Simulated assay, not measured.
Amino acid sequence: MGNSYGKRLRITTFGESHGKAIGVIVDGCPAGLALDENFIQSELDRRKPGQSKITTQRKEKDEMQILSGVFEGRTTGTPIQILIWNQDAKSKDYSHIAEKFRPSHADYTYHQKFGIRDYRGGGRSSARETAARVAAGAIAKQLLASENIEIYAYVSQVGDIRLEKSYNELDLSKIEDNIVRCPDAEMAERMIDLIDGVRKDRDTIGGIVTGVIKGVPPGLGEPVFDRLHAELAKAMMSINAVKGFEYGSGFEGVKMRGSEHNDLMVTENDQFRTKTNFSGGIQGGISNGEDIYFNVAFKPVATIMKDQESVDEKGESTIVSGKGRHDPCVVPRAVPIVEAMAALVIADFYLLNKTSKL
């Protein structure tokens, strides 16, 4: 039913935005992994609402509880269940749209598919579900850290304000230095001003999150349908509000000739390398040992604090008024979500690779 992801490392998320709780079951994590619960909580804190003036003011502590799969600080090899209670749900904020379809939301499509919908904050379609992914991704990150694989994400564009520098030109340790999560201080201030201005105008705006994965060994990925970049694309496109994905040279690569775009191979310290990395660390759907980098495009948040024309369940014209607490721009809080999904993809392929070799 589309609530699970992964093969060797498989997660299943559950819960609704205004239900009692949300959570995740992580199955397939190897036994004996030393699990830092404080790190999992710190990742949730990066995603939680109410962080700053440019995010939703819903106040959720997002305190997680591990119910199973961990004993004396180590994974047992059995399913890990993590629960996150909803504490600041205000369902009355959505009573006015109980029978109305909000523009560019999942209201109509969920109603058509299931014949029923949870209108409280969008129910299962709400981005609140992504907190469960971040918790699972924090486990995957710790598994990958034992193999010296590092995952970063940062905001590289908001509206028409675009950071032109490559990730290689940035100090990625500065991602958390500002509320927009852009590692370039000057660009960060411009992005923050734009988002705050849009918020005051009772509107929303989109942006791009750039992801970088370092230390991936060559050989991760499967031929044909389960290519590494295809799984990364699926993982990123499953995140709320995502409208596009590109890796390596992406769409800009169409402007180049093959003689420019080909990544020539060399050997350095008895290791195979490429002089350039237009391939984005992936060739033939399998990692080649270079950095994997990609961009994820997020649309403007669909809920705006302005009246909009729509229809109700009877097909009659109506006006939808924006109420509740919503992000004027989703990308600052999307950064840990992108990292989490990238970690889950790489961890899954890492474990698959271990079981595919004698």
Rank of each mutant, 00 (worst) to 15 (best):
T55K: 03
V330C: 01
N288L: 02
T130F: 07
T55D: 05
V158P: 11
V254Q: 13
I346M: 01
G244E: 08
K214Q: 12
F71N: 02
G281W: 04
G253R: 11
Q51D: 02
G15N: 10
L143T: 03
R202M: 05
V254C: 01
Y94R: 12
G315Y: 08
A98K: 15
Q81H: 00
S91L: 00
I304A: 02
D196Y: 15
R120F: 08
G258Q: 10
V155D: 02
I66C: 10
I337Q: 07
F71C: 04
K90D: 11
V301F: 08
T13L: 01
A153T: 09
C182R: 01
F114Y: 15
G211E: 07
S42W: 00
P183K: 03
F39H: 14
T12E: 01
P79E: 12
K234H: 13
F251P: 05
A106N: 09
E260I: 01
V212M: 04
Q308R: 15
K113L: 13
D226A: 13
L351P: 10
V301K: 08
L351K: 04
R133V: 11
G284T: 03
P79W: 12
I82L: 05
A340Y: 02
Q283L: 15
R117S: 05
H111T: 06
D203A: 05
I97V: 15
A340V: 08
G137Y: 09
R190H: 09
T12G: 08
T55H: 07
Y167A: 12
G281K: 06
E268T: 12
F71A: 07
S166C: 04
V320H: 11
Q87M: 10
S17H: 09
D36C: 07
V335T: 04
G206A: 11
G69V: 11
D196L: 15
S17Q: 10
